[in-house]
Design a protein around this nucleic acid. Structure first.
Lengths: 215, 215
DNA sequence: AAGTATTTTAAACAAATGATTAAAACCAAT
DNA sequence: ATTGGTTTTAATCATTTGTTTAAAATACTT
């Protein structure tokens, strides 16, 4: 098998298709993307898509799998680091996710849409993530609450709030930019600012003692 | 023109189609929904869709328009109320949106996806919302910051944070439920809790003085 | 009840779309 | 150069899908 000894510098056809498919699927979703769109975007013959990936659906699942891993990779790593404390974990997580989404702004909406339409399609993968509730991070948080460092707060709220503050500005960027009347450049500056501000906000929320106050 | 004097109790065919279309479009988006799906869901003959709404696209735009108005209606109203202070506005806004999204959980993702793919399709409608930056609410916030009640924070961050905390738990519900291992019932309780907690958190974030701390 | 307008239906159409095929082009080794 | 494998291409196929048509059914008016 003399396999692509030629194109070592250039992208291989397989790569070109995957890159084009990832771009389009991530931006528009499975149903809105036609195989001919992918072929055109990749600059390849339509039949090559099936030659390399069998079907549109198989290609989509491949892209989805990779995107999903990219999405959750950071969590599993950071959440179980024994050598960092709560504050450090929050800072690292916020920074790495803001960097990731700055590079792939369509990624969050893509994953969350897919997860919403097919909640069970990734339950096996999510099991790896489910470990979150038993992660070092969550244990550290619970410990801190037990010791009175922070008031009580359900893990749901803590994780929801953290993810909210990180993810939403990417999902809602067109709306936020219109509403607040800022340029793309200003938007990107705001996003960068949030790397430092979100950890401060999270701590402020943790300390707010909201649970006692609502009773 | 003798127009439907019969079905005053029952849903009219037009309504049945709209209800079915809204349900499917909101859940799966334009491209993933087939006209035959809508017809089946509505329990009507396929041709009636075109008879009443001309085309799939016209029907979609109609649904989209209504959904969008539903989405932004609350903002315009609450934001320009001269008779409520900052705290009251936040409380009302949080409560009305959590109620809205509890009833229509797919609405936020639907709107935000559409806005992301076609940012200009609603710029005319958003202009009505753009008034937000000149709203009573934003003026009140800026005033409070000028008077030292709250430290400085860009409107972008304030609005982004508020919308984040409200909207994300709906967008990310499948993921959040899996990760935190809670039931649908528990999830709904958490969501209700947030009505009271989010205003507290927002105030805590406002007071956190994050801008000074990051310098 | 007859006549007229409106609504509904089954069938069909045309274009779009995912996939396949068979031949051509290409590549590396002999 | 020839061979044997791999990759690419143009053409074609079979379904799906949005829409239309013409007839049937229904509702309303006189």
């Amino acid at each position: 098998m003399a396999k692509q000894l030629k194109k070592k510098i250039d992208q291989t056809t397989e790569e070109k298709i995957k890159i084009a498919a990832r771009k389009l699927f991530t931006r528009k979703g499975f149903a809105a993307v036609k195989t001919r769109d992918i072929a055109e975007e990749a600059g390849i013959n339509l039949a090559l898509l099936n030659y390399y990936f069998r079907s549109k659906e198989k290609l989509f699942k491949l892209i989805m799998e990779e995107s999903f891993l990219q999405f959750v990779k950071g969590i599993a790593e950071q959440f179980n680091d024994e050598n960092t404390n709560i504050d450090e974990k929050i800072e690292k997580l916020v920074e790495s996710y803001i960097d990731l989404f700055s590079q792939y702004p369509d990624l969050p909406l893509f994953i969350l849409s897919e997860l919403r339409e097919h909640p069970d399609a990734f339950s096996s993968r999510l099991d790896a993530v489910t470990g979150i509730s038993r992660s070092v991070f969550v244990k550290q948080i619970r410990e801190a609450m037990k010791n009175g460092v922070y008031p009580e707060m359900h893990t749901f709220h803590f994780l929801a709030n953290m993810m909210s503050l990180i993810v939403f500005p990417f999902i809602g960027s067109p709306m936020l930019m219109k509403i607040t009347d800022i340029s793309v450049k200003q938007y990107q500056e705001m996003i960068q600012e949030r790397k430092k501000m979100i950890p401060i906000w999270i701590k402020a929320m943790l300390k707010s003692n909201a649970y006692k106050l609502i009773k």
